[in-house]
Design a protein around this nucleic acid. Sequence first.
DNA 1: CGCCAGGCCTTAC
DNA 2: GTAAGGCATGGC
Length: 291
Amino acid sequence: MVEGVIELPEGELDLKLSMECGQTFVWNKWSGKPLYEDTSCRKFYKVHGEDLVLLWQEGTDLYYRGTMEEEEIYNLLNLDVSMEELEEELSRDEIIEEAFEDFRGLRILNDEFFPTLISYIISAQMQIPRIKRMVNRIAEKWGSTVAYENQEFNRFPTPEELAQASEEELRDLGMGYRASYVKETTEQVLDGEVDPSKVRDMSYPEAQEELKKLTGVGDKVADCVLLFSLGFHDSYPLDTWGKKVIGEVYPEFEDSRYWKVAEDMREYFGEYAGWAHEYLFHWGRENREIL
DNA sequence: CGCCAGGCCTTAC
DNA sequence: GTAAGGCATGGC
């Protein structure tokens, strides 16, 4: 067992906000209730590979417990990205500065590739709490368990494990037409058609094209996987909220073509455009009445 | 009942 | 290359 405390600078992390802003379907509430349906619990856990990680925050102290070493926890939260430098890097206009101030400590998480890939394939035309419920059902049905302190925790299935699921069984979970996407993409990953460790080393355009070979992965899902699991901090996923925000706040960037808007936003915000996206995404959801 | 949700695939120009 | 239509299911 491993446990400890990481002391962080003021404003460096808002763990609860980072977990609950809608970016992850991999983390869970320690209370056992689903993420996005329980906002009172402040402890979060996930199974990552063979490890169990439990995190909570008190003031500027980040507490961890489980089987994962501290160095790896830094990676999970992208703690090598300094918020002070990020703020300087992203300061382009009053809107992003306001969002950065209001949501100080919101960080992009670094989740595992396969769970992120499948959960964002499922996310198409679906509401966020429902996506999380679906991902949990998949973990319960096909994921193996990891034992920790006399308890067993489900983890999201590996490609090998999920390949055991038939398309019909997936459909029975309620994922509709996405069932065939999940089935086919699982086979493609299992066959090595797309190798995440190779995608990491590609340029952004190559990496996006590579992921789009997978069934059910278009521009937006590819950008999410790149940002949330493969270290592409400049990837700018253009979702329904992002489009509304752009229409309201950055009308000069409006365009019917996905790639054009995403490219403009990457150029506008630079190296950490994906982080800017997350601030604006959350800003949009918090201010939905004016969009 | 109708409308929409972290879009993607197919088909037609 | 770009634009339109269909698509499963659940929540409101």
